[in-house]
């Protein structure tokens, strides 16, 4: 727990014995079994694990999109079990951002409108929504693509729009489900650099599911899901032949954005 002058900052996420079962009447499948962890604000946490191990279900529980069968979950210090549906919706809107593997942009809305959609209902005026969306698109290097529909954008660009959408509301938590899973290696690397760069400049907690060890190594904390069980692990060692992973440095973000602007790949 981090201590701020005068008061205590609660963990972004606190899980205690979190369990999620699915039952079709005759058979019960335990997707998440007794998951316990604490994720602090401003940290980056990776979750790795084989397909079907319960990673996405865990992420949906953390994002208040699903309700646990048992256990406790506190989001920014608030007990999820005590929240009404409306409160959970408000918390998602105001404090949580989502990035999906398949981008999940609304196909009929432009890039700016997709970003703006995350501000609907926040009380921001139309002008404010548009300004903030434009600024966010500029930060992800898509200012000149704001009026384009998703189908007119490459995969990398679509994911950057999704990142802009996740970040436009200044969330305290970002939950990313395999954000590079649908991108080629270089684009994926660029996108993860962008996401980490944006998160590192704020006090946002990032929890991301990934299959990519290189991406996972960029996290501060490493969790592994195995058959529904969550455990903290050490990061996988870098392969000997792998190039040294550059560390974020001043001016690096600008270079990434320039590179992304220069070559748009799917």
């Amino acid at each position: 727990m981090n201590t701020v002058t005068g008061h205590v900052t609660p963990p972004a996420l606190q899980l205690g014995g979190l369990r999620r079962e699915f039952s079709d009447g005759s058979e019960t499948v335990v997707a998440v079994a007794e998951a316990t962890a604490t994720i602090d604000a401003g940290t980056v946490t990776s979750i790795i694990g084989p397909s079907g191990s319960g990673k996405t279900t865990l992420l949906q529980l953390l994002g208040l999109l699903d309700t646990p069968t048992a256990g406790k979950l506190a989001v920014l210090g608030q007990e999820a079990a005590r929240m009404s549906a409306a409160e959970r919706t408000r918390l998602r809107r105001d404090r949580i951002g989502f990035v999906f593997q398949h981008f999940n942009l609304v196909p009929t809305l432009t890039a700016r409108e997709n970003v703006e959609a995350a501000l609907v209902g926040t009380g921001a005026s139309r002008q404010e929504r548009r300004e903030r969306s434009s600024i966010m698109l500029d930060r992800v290097g898509l200012a000149d693509r704001a009026g384009h529909l998703p189908q007119q954008l490459s995969g990398g660009e679509q994911q950057r729009v999704a990142i802009a959408r996740a970040l436009v509301g200044n969330p305290a938590i970002i939950l990313a489900d395999e954000p590079t899973g649908n991108l080629d290696e270089q684009t994926g690397q660029d996108v993860i650099e962008l996401l980490l760069g944006l998160v590192r400049t704020s006090d946002t907690a990032l929890v991301m599911i990934t299959h990519d060890p290189a991406v996972a190594r960029r996290a501060d904390h490493h969790l592994r899901m195995q058959a529904g069980h969550l455990e903290e692990v050490l990061p996988e060692p870098e392969p000997p032949a792998a190039a040294p992973v550059p560390q974020p440095a001043p001016g690096r973000m600008a270079r990434i954005v320039r590179r992304l602007r220069g070559g748009r790949r799917g």
């Binding site: 408000r90 998602r92 951002g97 999940n104 609304v106 959609a117 609907v120 209902g121 509301g169």
Partner: peptide
């Protein structure tokens, strides 16, 4: 997705 990003039912 809209529900996830905070749209109420």
């Amino acid at each position: 997705t809209l529900r996830a990003i905070g749209w109420s039912p």
